[in-house]
């Protein structure tokens, strides 16, 4: 047992477990991201709205979610939220892989609240004269946002959004606490069954690092290709 033997965890059943965990982690990332970005955009617009109720909703959403640890979110959305649902909805959830659904909800909300602030900063960094000019030309608020401000804002917020994506990728590992069979969960399972802790976590580290570096490379590439224009 003295020597490290990575082949133990990279062959046979253990490999199958690790690969399935890795794939589920990627799926968690994709699903949460696709939910988080539109949600964050809506929340950012709410916070910038001239309607007080919407501003209040946006502020409560962001501060309420961002200031609670992700671990607590996970446990809340898995153990507490379903109990508050009406019974048919709860039964539906429990029949449809509740571990994954609840993990995606927690991850999307948590990432979404951070992304909302990044998007809000991006929108605010677009000169106010842009929206004034758009409104003067007859655009409504939403149309001015959609056609004039947001295209400029998104270019500015892409780097921080990629950074949030990186955080989201790493945060998927927290889902192990609610029994979501993602990479961290499968790694612990392999360790328990193989007694090869270093090898199991070594492989997991490499997998997380690889995807993280890809995301970082995308960020660097984007900044080279589309440098922020001075306005």
């Amino acid at each position: 047992m003295g020597e490290f033997d990575f082949s133990v965890v990279t062959t046979g059943e253990f490999r199958t477990w690790l690969v399935s965990g890795f794939l589920l982690s990627l799926q968690l990332l994709a699903a949460s991201w696709l939910l988080a970005v539109p949600m964050a955009t809506v929340v950012a617009l709410c916070r910038l709205s001239s309607v007080g109720v919407l501003r209040g909703f946006g502020a409560v959403f962001v501060e309420g979610i961002r200031n609670v640890p992700l671990l607590v979110h996970m446990l809340f959305w898995y153990f507490a939220m379903p109990e508050l649902l009406p019974e048919p909805a709860r039964n539906w959830l429990y029949e449809h892989n509740a571990e994954v659904v609840c993990a995606v909800i927690a991850l999307a909300l948590y990432s979404g609240s951070y992304m909302a602030e990044d998007i809000r900063s991006g929108i605010r960094s677009v000169s106010a004269t842009q929206i004034e000019a758009a409104r003067a030309l007859g655009f409504g608020f939403l149309a001015a946002m959609r056609r004039v401000v947001l295209p400029q804002a998104f270019r500015i917020v892409v780097p921080p959004l990629i950074s949030q994506t990186l955080n989201l990728w790493k945060n998927t590992s927290i889902a192990t606490v609610i029994g979501t069979a993602e990479l961290m969960y499968q790694t612990q399972k392999v360790e328990t069954n193989s007694f090869r802790g270093v090898e199991s976590f070594g492989v997991a580290t490499l997998a997380y690092l690889t995807v993280s570096l890809v995301i970082t490379a995308v960020a660097v590439g984007f900044q080279r290709r589309f440098p922020v224009r001075a306005i």
Binding site: E83, G179, Q188, T192
Partner: peptide, 30 residues
Amino acid sequence: EANLRKVVPSVDVVTFETAPQALVALQQHK
């Protein structure tokens, strides 16, 4: 988990950090 799989290979096992959490999951019909 390993022992149960030996007896019932097709079982779908979900594990938690502590035994009480697993018990709560059972109580909540999960």
